[in-house]
Each structure stands twice: as structure tokens, then as C-alpha cells.
Design a protein around this nucleic acid. Structure first.
Lengths: 134, 134
DNA sequence: AGCCTTATTTAGAATAATTCTAAGTCTTAA
DNA sequence: TTAAGACTTAGAATTATTCTAAATAAGGCT
């Protein structure tokens, strides 16, 4: 899990302590927190931070593709530092959210009925369910 | 496209004129309208209807699986009378939303890295992109 | 180091979609 | 035909998020 000392550097962006802390919190516990969750966690190290700043930082990180924004139905957005293309599984027993890897070598057009050379700019796959033998 | 005279009958539910109209509007133009869109359309035939009722009717139809609720990021929910399992493609050029069929005979575990016998209760696949030669 | 320009942060107000509330109306079954 | 419950309604309330305007902080330049 915790390997690289995730120090973020985005060219052209000031890496303020707020941005660093928001990003650190996201990489520290990869449980897909909401903005409010991030706010609570960042306040521990940066008590003066405001919720608006957390929203701003998250938005900036998402825009610069340092973080992914994940939506489940109409719930609050959640944030995820896993930049690999992946889906999400919401475990209905534990309430936890897991990243799901795509099987190697599959293309969307292998399982979806779309023209072969459609240019996909965004893909969301989210499942909800119950794991076996739970 | 328009084959069956989609008259809805859900056992145990009163098919009020509001519910009928909301459902009719959804089947009439399958363009994934929002609740506000549905409201505007239903008002033409049922001027006295309230937005709250449209929300109530949509919720009831979704609960009884007569209609699917579709979410794109944090936009307003959209509604879809196609009950087959399918995904959605948001065409960035035209702004339209198309249903996407899954290829025959594929299982989720063919392309997603999940335990074979996971019980999936809900699946959302939404893509955004640009169709070829557009 | 000190200054300038601009980016960023902040608190609080504003917004937008949706849900809730409480009262009124309609249905249905007896 | 009437009581009970289901449904609808208008408007208030809620909630997540965005906006606003003022204050602060960062970097670059001298």
C-alpha cells in the first residue's frame, strides 16, 4: 500500500500547504472519502483550513488529473488518488468501496456495443453488490 | 422504436393520471429527460401537476422498476424506460445520450477483476465521448 | 531583503436539485 | 356512502456544492 512518498508537483501550480495536505490525506487512506471527510482529516494537521478550500483543492487536483472524482448515484462526490483506469465496487455489507481493475487486454468494444473507433473521453463503471461467502 | 402501447400496470399501485402521464412522457420521447424536463412535458397535458408530484411519480416508478434512474456525474438525474441491462453514452458533440447494449454472452467477470460469484445488485456504466467520423 | 503581481484562501452567502411537511383530495373496499 | 389510506400539492427545508469579495500568501524581480 504505502510505498512512494507521494509528494505532488504539478507544473504551473503553487503547491500550497492546503493542497499538499488535501493530497496527502487522499493518498494516506484510500477509502474514497467525500469532501467533508477530507475536510475533517485535513483539519487535524491544518486546523484553519476552510471547507471551501478543500473543495477548491479537490477541484484543482481533479482538473490536473492528480486525483479522480467518483460519483455513486447522487451521493456526495468521493475522491480517489488511483490514476489507473479502474471501476468501483461498493460493498453493501461493509459499506466500503474498492477499486476494480479491468482485465488485461480488454477493449470497451469487446463488451459494449459501440462503434470500434469511438473516442471515449470518460468512462465510469460502478457496481454495487455483495462479495461471495461473506 | 414505438411498438407497444405502453400502458403501465403495477400491482398494488394506483395508476393515477399523474403517474400515467409521467410514464407516458418517458416512453414517448426516450431522450433521458431530467425531472424538470418531465415536468415541462407533463404540464402540457396535465397543467395542474406539481414538480413534487413528478419527483414522487418518478421515484415510485424507479422503486417498482418500471423506469431506470441514470446519473451523469453530479448532474440532475435522468430517467429511462429501457429496462434491459444497458449502459449510457453521452455524445459530447450533440449532447445526446444513447443507450448502449452489452455484447451478447459477456459476464462482468470477463472484463472486470471481481470474484466470479460476486452478487451484483446494481451496475452503472456511463461513457462520454465522440463518435467516429463526426 | 523588500516589493509587486497574481494566485490562493477564507467565511459566509447563494444556488440548485431534491426531499420533506402538512393539509387537502381522491380511491377503493366494505 | 363512508372511512381509511393513498396520492397530490405548495411551499419550506435540506444538502452538497459553488460563488463572492476581501484578506493573505507565493514567487519573481530588483
Amino acid at each position: 500500500m504505502s510505498t512512494s512518498t507521494d509528494t505532488l508537483n504539478i507544473p504551473g501550480l503553487r503547491m500550497t500547504k492546503q493542497r499538499k495536505e488535501v493530497y496527502r490525506v487522499l493518498t494516506e487512506t484510500r477509502d474514497h472519502p467525500t469532501a467533508a471527510d477530507v475536510y475533517d482529516r485535513v483539519k487535524l494537521s491544518t486546523p484553519g483550513i476552510s471547507l471551501a478550500t478543500v473543495y477548491n483543492c479537490l477541484e484543482t487536483l481533479v482538473e490536473h488529473k492528480a486525483v479522480k472524482q467518483v460519483n455513486f448515484e447522487r451521493e456526495s462526490s468521493r475522491y480517489c488518488p488511483n490514476l489507473n483506469e479502474h471501476g468501483h465496487f461498493h460493498d453493501e455489507i461493509t459499506g466500503t468501496i474498492h477499486d476494480i481493475k479491468f482485465k488485461d487486454g480488454i477493449k470497451l468494444s469487446d463488451f459494449l456495443d459501440i462503434p470500434e473507433d469511438t473516442h471515449i473521453t470518460n468512462l465510469d463503471i460502478t457496481l454495487r453488490g455483495i462479495l461471495p461467502k461473506n
